[in-house]
Design a protein around this nucleic acid. Structure first.
Lengths: 255, 255
DNA sequence: TGGTCGGCACTGGTCATACCAGAACTTATG
DNA sequence: CATAAGTTCTGGTATGACCAGTGCCGACCA
């Protein structure tokens, strides 16, 4: 794909995109710099403005530039986390309409999280353990807030996730465990998996008392980590996720 | 992100995109169906054609529709593999210019592959083993071809990977191991990791005799799998990848 | 009759121009 | 000197025209 093959006679936009990409690659345009305006690029490259726009939007979707109405485009340093997060929408749709992919995806996350907690148990640094406990404490505080929401609205669903603190902290917890491996890529992936699946989580509005259970399970995982017992930690993580896996809703629409 | 929040005052294109997305979600438009032409949608939704185009191109980037010059857009069923593959370009750039992310990424793959081979060793089904051996046999055959290429051109590099058979088979091998877990998501991820890193692989033009070494290592991994010895398999996979990890070139451009 | 070849209609791709809307810079004003 | 008003940048959209591939269908030929 993206073939920079010469015979690509079609799609001037791709040519423009490749040109700008090259200028960024070469370091001529560096993160934070402002790119020329569409009109400037238009005349400079002898193409129409729509062509420039198409190329720019591609670059924006790649996370390489940032476009704001009224201001000039800015070169951006793409982060793995950023890139992964931008897939969210697509991933959601794919998971929703790919049949058994959803289950395989949940299992893949299970495999992943088990390995994360296993590696984390091998190096139970005290301050990391304390961080995890702090997160659990925060979840305990957030529990109340969510219970209040519970009696409120039935939630206007799938139009985006109204991120409540509890859910966010839940994700942070798992991410923090992955971060104990010392590898931010693994942590980013862990966070992404959580976010993608969180969209299908239904426990936010049902299952009262579930927060307490989640907190307990988290605590026991931390205990295992602190004890430096990988197998125990893996087992408890597996329990935790397997229980949670029953709380996803898989709404296939006429498929 | 993607916030379907109401206060999204700007960007009619986003509205159009959301509308089309909804029609696909609802099942009104199903994979394989032809969408209305840009001009039809334009009049139907009372917006300019550029707006329609922007929305459609976003959907295309998401892998939800397929646009061909001269024909009507077609709804496409996005595959996890497809989605992951489309990230290739972006991922390449990110890995190239994110400093130590590259090393973390390699380590993440190491963690991942080790777990894959561990799981695979737990269920050493004979036909799977045979499949792996077949792949190794094919690599042996492809070895010659690549050695011929070696004396040829120095390779016009980074303009896309001229996929030689050996490299492809190498990726297939790792993917096949991941597939032994029975989870296609893991296999897809495995293949993606390989492809992304293959871009930085330099052993295609140097290190004569390296193919033989690769084949040997693969064989020994299969032996361990056949023996149903997870720890041994993991160890051999780790050796294999650690050796290979020295053969990536990390060309930071003026950063 | 059957197959091929041409042309027409339809589609996306691009251009040019004009205008709207948000951001930023400049200037006048208290 | 600070703030507010206004000018002039920027991207976002509409319109109409034309170019360039695709596909359909009918005419022509063997």
């Amino acid at each position: 794909m993206t073939s920079a093959d010469q015979p690509a006679r079609t799609k001037r936009a791709d040519h423009v995109q490749a040109h700008l990409l090259a200028r960024i690659r070469e370091g001529e345009l560096r993160p934070g710099d402002l790119l020329p305006s569409e009109r400037e690029l238009m005349t400079a490259m002898s193409v129409g403005r729509v062509t420039i726009r198409e190329a720019m939007q591609n670059l924006q979707r790649m996370g390489l530039v940032e476009i704001r109405h009224g201001g000039r485009p800015r070169v951006r340093q793409p982060t793995l986390e950023q890139v992964i997060r931008d897939m969210g929408e697509t991933m959601r749709h794919t998971l929703t309409y790919s049949g058994d992919t959803f289950d395989h995806f949940k299992n893949a996350r299970l495999v992943f999280e088990k390995e994360m907690v296993r590696l984390a148990a091998l190096v139970p640094r005290p301050e990391r353990i304390q961080h995890l406990r702090d997160l659990i404490g925060a979840m305990d505080a957030a529990k109340v807030q969510r219970e209040q929401w519970r009696e409120g609205s039935e939630a206007g669903w799938p139009t985006g996730i109204a991120y409540d603190a509890f859910l966010r902290l839940d994700g942070d917890f798992h991410k923090a465990i992955a971060l104990m491996t010392g590898n931010p890529v693994l942590a980013a992936l862990c966070g992404a998996l959580f976010d993608w699946l969180a969209y299908f989580h239904v426990d936010r509005v049902r299952s009262p008392g579930l927060e307490r259970l989640t907190i307990e399970e988290h605590s026991r995982i931390v205990d295992a980590l602190e004890a430096g017992d990988p197998d125990l930690a893996v087992g408890r993580m597996a329990e935790h996720l397997n229980r949670a896996n029953t709380l996803y809703r898989q709404d296939h629409a006429a498929l």
